[in-house]
């Protein structure tokens, strides 16, 4: 690779020492370096993974308090069922037991799907969503500061009279379903939510719905609602 050039060329005079220039060809060196760079670029994690922060309720004591605080007309219970099905109902489960049609079926679709969870949540939480959209617009136009925006959004999301959502993933749903449901809440600006295990009553509701209200007809409902 190192090249020794005899200078001048042509007629070399006898007796005179030859002029020598030493040149090293760096091309292979560059090639090798490029390869190594490529390796390091692929092997390193320059981009950190995204993450969704989640806080689970502290067990027992706090939960009961919060549960009793939730107003029935503001509570939405979402049941994540098998094969990407979502069931939801408003208010108390006992009302739904009597009337099967109150348990509604939703999909994970976007805003243009009128049967989707997002469409329903956005409809219920319209005022808060509009408020936040207005704030975001103001922030984008640099009228309000970043910190102020964050604080205001937090206030709106944690509003005591706002929507409360309880997500109950059944044992048939997948991890992706849970993340999707949490995403829908984030999109619809709902800050108050809890993840809970489905109660026996909730599972019964799904079964009842799948059989078209057959279970409700067969069993004595007054006893069941008393149990709840």
């Amino acid at each position: 690779m190192a090249e020794v050039n005899t200078g001048g060329g042509g007629e070399a005079k006898k007796g005179k020492p030859k002029k020598q220039t030493l040149r090293v060809d760096f091309t292979p060196m560059v090639d090798m370096n490029m390869l190594l760079i490529t390796f390091f670029m692929f092997a390193t994690s320059l981009a950190k993974p995204q993450a969704m922060e989640i806080a689970m309720p502290v067990k027992d004591d706090v939960k009961k308090e919060e549960k009793s605080k939730v107003k029935d007309d503001k509570a939405i219970t979402i049941l994540l069922g098998k094969s990407n099905k979502i069931f939801y109902y408003f208010g108390k489960p006992t009302d739904v037991m009597v009337d099967n049609s109150k348990l509604k079926l939703a999909s994970y679709g976007g805003m243009d799907d009128h049967n989707s969870l997002r469409f329903m949540l956005a409809g219920r939480n319209k005022i808060a969503m509009e408020k936040i959209a207005r704030l975001k617009d103001q922030k984008d136009r640099k009228k309000i500061k970043e910190d102020f925006y964050k604080n205001e959004v937090k206030k709106i999301k944690n509003d005591k009279d706002g929507q409360v959502v309880i997500i109950k993933p059944t044992s048939d749903c997948t991890y992706a379903n849970l993340i999707d449901a949490l995403d829908e809440l984030a999109i619809c600006c709902i800050g108050t939510y809890a993840i809970d295990d489905p109660s026996k009553g909730d599972l019964w509701l799904i079964k009842n719905n799948e059989t078209g209200g057959k279970l409700a007809k067969e069993s004595d409902l007054s006893a069941l609602s008393a149990k709840k």
Partner: peptide, 8 residues
């Protein structure tokens, strides 16, 4: 009680 759920 606090976790980061890694997503893409």
């Amino acid at each position: 009680y606090r976790y980061h759920l890694i997503t893409k």
